[in-house]
Amino acid sequence: MARRVSLVMTVTMTLSVGMITPGLAWSDTHERTEQALAAEIDQVLREHGGTKTAPNEITWHPEGAGTVVLSLPTASGTPSPVKDDPARYAYGCPVNWYCLYENKNFNGLKAAGETGPGAGRLLKWSRFYCDTGAKGRYLELGDYGFRDRASSWVNATSDRFVGVGNWRAFPKFDTLWYMNPNSAAGYVGDTNDDKADLVWSCTH
């Protein structure tokens, strides 16, 4: 069962932490990882478009407003400290945004004081998609390099739930789980792990 927690509660969790491969000098590992990061960014840009807005970040502005941001792990794989008000982030997800994480336990991010992506990809978006009856009224995760990758999530909005689905054949899909407002799950469960293809959100 997925672990769900309220964002307004203090939660203690054991988070996974990336480690340097034994037997390799940190500088050697860092150099190769920097090259891998650059290659991965280039691949996402070729396949999905978008604009590179940071060394490890690509941003899209889908038709109809809203912003979608994909963050890839940095060379070290470690989180960054929050530079502004830590209360505006939960597991690296900004207030009024929705976030999906590639790995369990929010890619190893702490509940407060850190920003992503941590040790895995982080996809976040700001627009709600409500009408699932027509293609284009949901967020297609495959358009942003995040299909079949989600393992944990945060909904940092106060009044919008999010449905997460897995395609069978358009326009049919199976609902995997719901992301309630002001909630988070450190793991979506073995049955749903790495199966999310699309999301939609409506007023709760």
Score class of each variant (00 low, 15 high):
residue 1 M to K: 12
residue 6 S to L: 12
residue 7 L to N: 05
residue 7 L to C: 01
residue 8 V to G: 13
residue 11 V to L: 09
residue 12 T to H: 05
residue 14 T to A: 10
residue 14 T to Y: 03
residue 15 L to W: 00
residue 15 L to H: 13
residue 17 V to T: 08
residue 18 G to Y: 10
residue 18 G to H: 08
residue 19 M to H: 12
residue 19 M to R: 14
residue 20 I to A: 06
residue 20 I to Y: 03
residue 22 P to L: 09
residue 22 P to W: 11
residue 25 A to C: 04
residue 27 S to V: 02
residue 27 S to A: 02
residue 27 S to W: 03
residue 29 T to Y: 04
residue 34 E to G: 06
residue 34 E to M: 15
residue 36 A to K: 14
residue 40 E to F: 02
residue 47 E to H: 01
residue 47 E to T: 07
residue 49 G to N: 10
residue 49 G to E: 02
residue 50 G to W: 12
residue 57 E to S: 07
residue 60 W to I: 00
residue 61 H to N: 04
residue 61 H to W: 06
residue 62 P to F: 01
residue 65 A to S: 14
residue 66 G to Q: 15
residue 70 L to Q: 05
residue 71 S to Q: 13
residue 72 L to I: 15
residue 74 T to L: 11
residue 74 T to E: 01
residue 78 T to A: 13
residue 79 P to N: 05
residue 79 P to K: 14
residue 80 S to M: 14
residue 81 P to Q: 10
residue 82 V to L: 11
residue 82 V to Y: 09
residue 83 K to C: 00
residue 96 N to L: 09
residue 96 N to W: 03
residue 97 W to P: 02
residue 97 W to T: 05
residue 97 W to Y: 07
residue 100 L to P: 05
residue 101 Y to S: 05
residue 102 E to S: 06
residue 102 E to T: 05
residue 102 E to Q: 14
residue 105 N to V: 14
residue 109 L to P: 06
residue 113 G to N: 10
residue 113 G to A: 10
residue 113 G to V: 08
residue 114 E to D: 08
residue 116 G to D: 03
residue 117 P to C: 06
residue 120 G to N: 06
residue 121 R to I: 07
residue 121 R to G: 04
residue 125 W to G: 04
residue 125 W to V: 13
residue 126 S to Y: 01
residue 126 S to M: 09
residue 129 Y to M: 09
residue 129 Y to G: 02
residue 131 D to Y: 09
residue 133 G to Y: 12
residue 133 G to C: 03
residue 134 A to Q: 10
residue 136 G to Y: 07
residue 137 R to A: 02
residue 138 Y to D: 09
residue 139 L to K: 05
residue 143 D to M: 10
residue 145 G to E: 03
residue 146 F to G: 00
residue 147 R to H: 13
residue 148 D to F: 00
residue 150 A to N: 06
residue 151 S to F: 01
residue 151 S to C: 05
residue 152 S to T: 12
residue 152 S to E: 08
residue 154 V to H: 15
residue 154 V to C: 09
residue 154 V to R: 15
residue 154 V to P: 13
residue 156 A to Q: 04
residue 160 R to Y: 15
residue 160 R to V: 13
residue 160 R to F: 11
residue 162 V to A: 07
residue 163 G to Y: 10
residue 163 G to C: 02
residue 166 N to K: 15
residue 167 W to L: 08
residue 169 A to C: 04
residue 170 F to E: 08
residue 173 F to A: 11
residue 174 D to E: 11
residue 178 Y to A: 00
residue 178 Y to M: 08
residue 180 N to Y: 08
residue 184 A to T: 08
residue 185 A to V: 04
residue 186 G to R: 06
residue 186 G to I: 01
residue 187 Y to L: 01
residue 188 V to F: 00
residue 188 V to D: 00
residue 189 G to L: 14
residue 189 G to N: 06
residue 192 N to D: 04
residue 194 D to V: 00
residue 194 D to S: 01
residue 196 A to N: 01
residue 196 A to T: 15
residue 197 D to H: 14
residue 198 L to G: 00
residue 200 W to Q: 02
residue 200 W to K: 00
residue 201 S to A: 10
residue 202 C to H: 14
residue 203 T to A: 03
residue 203 T to Y: 02
